[in-house]
């Protein structure tokens, strides 16, 4: 698996798109850190971008890589390697290279700006950790879709729809339900609903560390007492991990039956 991982990273690190992605983050962060006096505001803007864009790019890269390397994957499948190792290698390769673009693109301006000693460093680290999680989650979801759908165009469409669902549609339905059942106690529902969408979960995790911890208190003691504590952080991170583990499990069960 490590060999596959090594080569897929090697391949991706030379891809133009990795650089475009890296340079995009680099320029975004530079302009945010240097044209903006307020570091927290910069991190909030970065969060807005990362929470929406990382899943989108992860999804697109995931399906694109799968479909474009289909024939090569077949060559690998004829080699004496276990199937699951080939796909895990590719999956981790894509996720890692995307994470690398993110971490370097955002991290370099941060270091140059000299923020390493500042208090923002924890928030910043959390932002990167969450960004990495989102990469791994959405590449895994994208791979699931690609593995299930042989038609490239169709697979691509479903993948974008999946992203749109998590990024927008889910929240729209969620908000609709909250408003409609306004008269009922909603904290447990709210908590569970945020756990079920990795984008929402990531956003809340970062918001809590930035400006909104007390804002959430406004929604009721239950939510704040959950998200405001270390326990909440641990549960949230575990929920994010589940969002990686479950798609991988489905991927490996799918792989056992899949014909190439």
């Amino acid at each position: 698996m490590l060999k596959i991982l090594k080569y897929s990273i090697y391949d991706l690190l030379r891809s133009r798109w990795s650089y475009v992605y890296f340079i995009f983050y680099l320029m975004l962060s530079f302009s945010l850190f240097f044209l903006n006096s307020d570091i927290d505001k910069a991190i909030i803007t970065l969060m807005n971008v990362i929470v929406v864009l990382t899943p989108l790019i992860g999804t697109i890269f995931g399906v694109m890589y799968y479909y474009s390397s289909k024939e090569f994957t077949e060559l690998l499948l004829a080699q004496p390697i276990k199937r699951s190792k080939i796909f895990m290698g590719q999956y981790i390769g894509i996720s890692l290279s995307l994470t690398l673009s993110l971490v370097l693109g955002v991290g370099i301006p941060f270091v140059i700006y000299g923020l390493f000693k500042s208090a923002a460093v924890f928030d910043f680290t959390l932002l990167l950790v969450v960004g990495a999680f989102l990469n791994f989650i959405f590449v895994a979801l994208a791979y699931n879709i690609a593995l299930s759908i042989n038609n490239k165009i169709k697979g691509f469409g479903y993948a974008i729809l999946m992203w749109l669902t998590f990024a927008v549609i889910y929240d729209a339905v969620f908000m609709g339900l909250l408003i409609h059942y306004n008269d009922y106690p909603l904290d447990k529902f709210t908590l569970i609903a945020t756990m079920l969408n990795p984008i929402d979960l990531s956003r809340i995790l970062i918001l809590l560390k930035l400006d909104a911890s007390a804002l959430l208190g406004y929604t009721g003691a239950f939510l704040q007492s959950f998200y405001g504590t270390n326990m909440g952080l641990i549960v949230s991170l575990s929920a994010l991990s589940m969002w990686i583990v479950l798609p991988i499990l489905r991927m490996s069960s799918k792989l056992k039956k899949k014909d190439f």
Binding site: K3, I4, Y7, R14, K70, E71, F72, L76, P80, I81
Partner: peptide, 28 residues
Amino acid sequence: LNYLPQVANFPSNLSVKELIEMVKNLRP
């Protein structure tokens, strides 16, 4: 077992040398 697939499509960012090395690497 050696297999020659019908369509020769390889990762476009690797060089020929790297690809050959890679496949060699995969087999003991």
